[in-house]
């Protein structure tokens, strides 16, 4: 019974649910503002993502006649729910070390592609040719960035397993790093960290890897036909995903804590998420243009995958 209550709390309030939503939207606001300032624009207010959600939720939803209506409505809900569950598994070091029975990296590996799958469902359900192209691009992109992610997670698991075996529980991974130092400062883990940094813009769908949405080419692709609350649902999904991916990065590579109790560590966690986003999302999307699908695929096979394998090899060698 108590277990149920605590799971509900983690799902709906902290670290998933309310906390993750607020943090995700805030991070998105900062992302937009900083990107604008880097381009010497004024940029929207930091709270703009919140205003967007409020506005969209009050609007009418228009569903195209030719769309598969059930699937069209289901896709954003599916993506949102998947991310809600994923956000619950993210440990906040020093505040909450992850659900010990649930916080498994393999589970996250299955939950993380859900937004991409939701996009594919949305794209094919909307019956727009742009949605169809977006769907096929999303599929290609997913295959490209999932490989480095898998290898990175494997490397971390082997490293955290110590001298023998492997450790797939995120809580244990964090605990191991608290004892033996963060992986981010470990030389043999450095290639894996860089591979993870490359994975982030791909999974977040930002320039240079925003192929499925690519506004000037595909007019937002799968999102083209969406409006109103359903679009807001997609926005919330991507805000949650931002927190999940950044939280995963913090847990995998920089779970260090600072003295000063839960409140200080919560601020520390938010700060780390922000810095990670700054490096891997904001600056990357400001400094680059969009790649083509074939170029993206080649990039992911060439660099992040190789880097991740190098880390895996080093970890196995010095075990």
């Amino acid at each position: 019974m108590l277990d149920m209550l605590s799971h509900s709390f983690h799902l709906l309030i902290f670290p998933g649910g309310l906390f993750a939503l607020l943090l995700g939207l805030l991070l998105k606001g900062f992302d937009r503002k900083i990107c604008a300032r880097l381009q010497r624009r004024v940029g929207p207010p930091i709270l703009q993502p919140f205003y967007d959600i409020i506005k969209l939720s009050q609007k009418e939803t228009i569903i195209p006649d030719t769309a598969n209506k059930a699937m069209f409505k289901f896709a954003p809900v599916f993506g949102f729910m998947g991310m809600m569950v994923a956000a619950m598994l993210i440990p906040v070091p020093g505040v909450w070390n992850g659900a010990s029975g649930l916080g498994d990296m393999l589970m996250l590996l299955y939950l993380l592609p859900i937004p991409a799958i939701a996009f594919m469902l949305a794209g094919s359900a909307s019956s727009s040719p742009y949605g169809a192209i977006g769907t096929s691009r999303e599929m290609v992109l997913m295959f490209a960035y999932e490989i480095p992610l898998l290898v990175v997670l494997l490397t971390v698991a082997l490293k955290a397993g110590g001298a023998d075996g492997s450790e797939f529980s995120l809580a244990q991974v964090v605990a191991f790093q608290h004892e033996n130092g963060s992986f981010g400062f470990n030389l043999s883990m450095l290639p894996a960290f860089i591979a993870f940094l490359c994975f982030i813009p791909g999974t977040m769908g930002v320039v240079p890897f925003d192929l499925p949405e690519a506004e000037p080419e595909l007019l937002e692709g799968p999102l083209l036909e969406y409006s109103g609350p359903l679009l807001a649902m997609f926005n919330l999904m991507s805000a949650l995903k931002l927190v999940v991916v950044m939280g995963l990065g913090v847990a995998l590579f920089f779970p260090g804590t600072i003295p000063g109790g839960a409140v200080a560590n919560l601020a520390w966690f938010i700060f780390k998420c922000f810095m990670l986003m700054l490096v891997s999302v904001t600056i990357v999307r400001t400094a680059t243009g969009r790649l083509r699908t074939d170029q993206t695929f080649k990039f992911y096979l060439k660099y992040p995958s190789v880097l991740a394998y190098v880390s895996l090899g080093l970890t196995l060698l010095f075990k």
Partner: peptide, 16 residues
């Protein structure tokens, strides 16, 4: 042309 390839920073620079 730069905006079309998603390079908004350089696009802003050109407009400036």
């Amino acid at each position: 042309g730069l905006h079309v390839i998603g390079f908004n920073t350089l696009f802003m620079h050109a407009m400036e």
